[in-house]
Amino acid sequence: MLGYILRRLVSVAFTFIAVSLIIFLMMHAVPGGPFDANDMPVSEAVRAKLMAQLGLDQPLYVQYLKYMWGVLHFDFGVPYQSPGESVLQLLSRAWVPSLVLGGLGVLIGAPLGILLGMAAALNRNSWIDYLASAVATIGLTIPVFVTSMLLILVFAVWLKWLPASGWPNPERWILPIIAYAAIPVATYARYTRSAMLDTMSRPFVTVLRAKGLSERRIVFQHVLRNSAIPLVTVFLPMFIGTATGSIFVEAMFRVPGLGAYFVSSIETRDYPLEMALMLMITFMYCIAYLLSDIVYALINPRIRVGGAE
């Protein structure tokens, strides 16, 4: 197992280098730059000075190596759009709201989805099964900005139960968390339902019944445990996808989160921030998949305990 983790970490490093190169090249391949004339009416001399100051006059490979050298020392540079702080400071400030809202969305949504999927699988073709299908379809097909708008309309405008937007006080979190939870609920309801139905149709479940086990024990001990194996692998990647913020949810609920920076960094050609965000996402996905695979091996004896006699 240790050897496996080591090998995977080596491959994470290679992925990291490959992704950073691709992003860096694509970033610079797009025509234009951070100080284009129509955005920033400065004289040619000032522009040249700025470029030299930021090192943008150097050859690309030098810029790349310099930036990566900085990354190795946890120095991601200074964002052009907010020169008063480092990229790292900006990220740690903006990430908190995204992590809290998105993270809670998944942490609340996933168990709800699992419960809904279980109820659907155990009562196949009943009203609850149809409800679960409806929730799953709606959650996956209606765009999150529409859900957000509906939530605001119903709970803030009509019912006046909750504030429509904002960040610091927790009652303002409720609506965005619900908006974030839609996708985990839907995904998990679908996955859980099909995983459980699949498990329940396997011959060993008939054997369990034939040996006189109670239906409760069959479901909670055997079916759930087997169905959980595909489910755990979905969790971490989904967590990361949601907990890095959504530009739509954050815009709808006016949350000062990370989401907006994904767009603005590209729009304003904010190279250091753009690189930092992409590298962060890449790194987190790599680690998430690694952890998922480890958990998968831990709960699946066919992988944990090797080969046949």
Partner: peptide
């Protein structure tokens, strides 16, 4: 009654032993 019938009154052996056991226990 069912719990008594299954296992105590009658027990069953199935065709494919490879799929008749729960793989995770």
């Amino acid at each position: 009654d069912l719990a008594r019938l299954r296992g105590r009154s009658a027990a069953m052996i199935f065709q494919d032993p490879m799929t008749a056991f729960d793989p995770v226990f």
